[in-house]
Design a protein around this nucleic acid. Structure first.
Lengths: 208, 208
DNA sequence: TAGATTGTTAATCGATTAACAATC
DNA sequence: TAGATTGTTAATCGATTAACAATC
């Protein structure tokens, strides 16, 4: 331990967590790294290695207690807590996020949504969620103690919004704008157009 | 050349393409790998190496002609063409995709959207886009010659939908459901909840 | 105890980067 | 020509995997 954790581990950790959730639903109580590997299309040794960065969670000769491992990974991922989100941008993506009920179930609660378009401000875009003026962003984030900022504004506004979020104490950013954001807090990017381009590249490549 | 292309190259290729688009907007005519690297936060030698898998695009001592490289990468990515998409699932995500105008501008045209919920079928969810019964999916895909399927259904239906799409000749899948889909065509995954979990993991990790 | 499966080490594999000859 | 920057090789770095001792 105290070893450096390879970057791909975090994504896999999330996939382990989701797989264990499913195993709990199925009523499975104990699972081996081999069985997990089969379900996730990975190597068993990779799963054991990944887990070893965080501790020892299994019983030799037996496997992993599903519920115990699930809780342990949940702890590592910061799942316990309810996270408060603000969404900046009330266009298509912002509104879809605001209405994406699954997030709430998983512990991500949207506490505010903002836009600079006067025709959008004041509108209720999801049950109980009224679009606020983005000029009120900083005050709101501080008062509500929001921790995650979701950027759903056009590309040319994304960096500016990110800097504002960073300054008022946001801990992490989920960015839907197709630009590389430079801030000191962690950023996760979701770029639908980029994903489509990677897909068409793969399609074109295979057809040769 | 004829060398195996590392997996991360495709994502970077897309980022080069987007960066060159911006450079064209800025009126820049020639760019060095050094300048590109600075903008994308990469190493210049990585960019040169990546490009070398596909050919020679620069002039030694000079750099790359922005427009020429842009077109060359566009060719590699399969950008020229207009791609026809069908969206399966007319919930929040499906509808957001249907309304995401940016995609159309980039050459991704949504030709159909499907659901199995009778209360949704027949509704117009985007200008000119009426939700169709998913039982009509196969016929429609074949007749329209749709190439890309977007899966925006709940996790437990995703694999089934994917297999149906595969069978009727879809060339690639963009999957929003939080499950690993097993088909022989290329799949790109977008999982918002998973991205949020990776983000909170990073937040929790840094706070230690 | 015998069989199974973990946790961990060491070997392998793949991707990135530095360095430099080629050449504009 | 001299200076700059590419394309490519070889060295380095990091991640994955096989193998196995530890142990349930």
């Amino acid at each position: 331990m105290a070893e450096k954790i390879p970057k791909p581990v975090s994504k896999r950790l999330v996939s382990y967590y989701m797989c264990l959730e499913r195993l709990i639903d199925e009523g499975v109580e104990v699972v081996s790294s081999e069985e997990l590997a089969k379900r996730l299309d990975l190597k068993a040794s990779q799963i054991r290695k990944d887990l070893s960065y965080f501790g020892e969670f299994g019983k030799r000769g037996v496997g992993y207690n599903v519920e115990h491992l699930y809780n342990a990974i949940g702890e590592i991922l910061g799942v316990k807590k309810e996270w408060k989100l603000v969404v900046v941008g009330a266009g298509n993506i912002g509104r879809a996020i605001a209405n994406y009920a699954v997030m709430r179930e998983k512990g991500f609660r949207i506490v505010g949504i903002f836009d600079n378009d006067p025709s959008k401000i004041g509108k209720e875009v999801a049950p109980g969620l009224i679009v606020k003026d983005v000029s009120d962003l900083e005050r709101f984030v501080r008062e509500e103690g929001a921790e995650i900022g979701v950027i759903a504004v056009p590309a040319d506004h994304a960096q500016g919004v990110a800097e504002r979020l960073e300054k008022c104490g946001i801990l992490g950013i989920l960015n839907f704008a197709p630009v590389k954001i430079k801030v000191s807090v962690p950023v996760e990017n979701i770029d639908i157009t980029a994903a489509l381009r990677v897909l068409t590249f793969e399609i074109v490549r295979r057809s040769r």
